[in-house]
């Protein structure tokens, strides 16, 4: 493949370029991307419903009916186990957004379609599930760590505690969020981990600035959402606002974040390759 001669002369791209191209890609391909997200939701609901029906049948056959009303810890854990297939389907289809973004940028035809989500689902489903688990454990570790620190020293200032909590969460989730980008490109989890670490190590400014923007954007939507859900009386208008904000966060910001991450990955990787060639 030939390299664009202009690219050698140009300096590295700015954060504004990444955000701009990401938005352009989103505008061109929001239909297949949202389609994949809807597919994720539909499969989650369908597979979970089937699992719940199987769970209830097993519960009715092996234990008395009263147990249904008085769910013990054990049945709760078994229930969670039954929800795993649905969650895997959901996470794998959401993960396929990374594959579709990668396809737009690296296929050469500036193209992707909903059908591609099935290809990436089949190819990387367990990788995506593993990464989603890491994402979840990141939250869990952050909460457990902060709880531990608070118990150790109750006089510990809450501001510092919050800063540590959010810093850890931010760094860890940035790393985990970037992992599927190189996974879809390299095809191996080990290589993806090495590459993500290296990219983050050599370009911390770009990555952290972009993710700080998204982090603030997500928080600015999620925190009002939290207050709306828990602290206000539920009216139809309020529910509509909640639904609108949730849809905005899920169907616009999330795929946009994936597109920007993919653009950033390819651009930085390309720049590093060119710099390597220049040095040689």
């Amino acid at each position: 493949m030939k390299e664009d001669p202009d690219s050698v002369k140009q300096d590295s791209n700015s954060i504004k370029d990444y955000l701009k191209l990401g938005w352009e890609l989103y505008k061109d391909y929001y239909k297949p991307l949202i389609g994949a997200q809807l597919l994720a939701l539909i499969t989650f609901v369908c597979v979970s419903l089937i699992s719940i029906i199987i769970y209830i049948i097993i519960l009715l056959n092996f234990s008395p009916l009263e147990q249904l009303l008085n769910i013990t810890d054990l049945t709760g854990i078994i229930f969670l186990g039954f929800m795993i297939p649905g969650l895997i389907c959901f996470v794998a289809f959401i993960g396929s957004l990374y594959g579709m973004s990668n396809e737009i940028i690296s296929s050469g035809d500036y193209y992707t379609e909903l059908k591609s989500s099935f290809t990436y689902f089949y190819k990387f489903w367990w990788h995506y599930f593993l990464i989603a688990l890491c994402f979840f454990f990141g939250f869990l570790i952050a909460i457990l760590l902060t709880n531990y620190v608070m118990q150790l020293n109750p006089a510990f200032p809450r501001v510092i505690f919050l800063i540590i909590f959010f810093s850890f969460l931010f760094l860890f989730e940035t790393l985990v969020f970037l992992l599927p980008v190189s996974l879809t490109s390299t095809g191996s989890l080990k290589n993806a981990l090495n590459q993500t670490f290296n990219l983050l190590k050599h370009n911390p400014k770009v990555y952290l600035t972009i993710f700080a923007i998204f982090f603030i954007l997500s928080i600015s939507i999620d925190i009002p959402l939290y207050f709306l859900i828990f602290y206000f009386n539920k009216s139809i208008i309020l529910l509509l606002i909640i639904a609108l904000l949730s849809c905005m966060s899920f169907f616009i910001i999330f795929p946009y974040m994936i597109l920007v991450s993919t653009v950033m990955y390819h651009s930085i990787f390309n720049q590093e390759e060119l710099n390597g060639k220049k040095k040689k």
């Binding site: 493949m1 030939k2 390299e3 791209n13 035809d109 500036y110 390819h266 651009s267």
Partner: peptide
């Protein structure tokens, strides 16, 4: 005619 990678790392035919 050719396949080129532009400055944003996008592969384009």
């Amino acid at each position: 005619t050719k396949t080129v990678r532009n400055k944003m790392g996008m592969t384009l035919k």
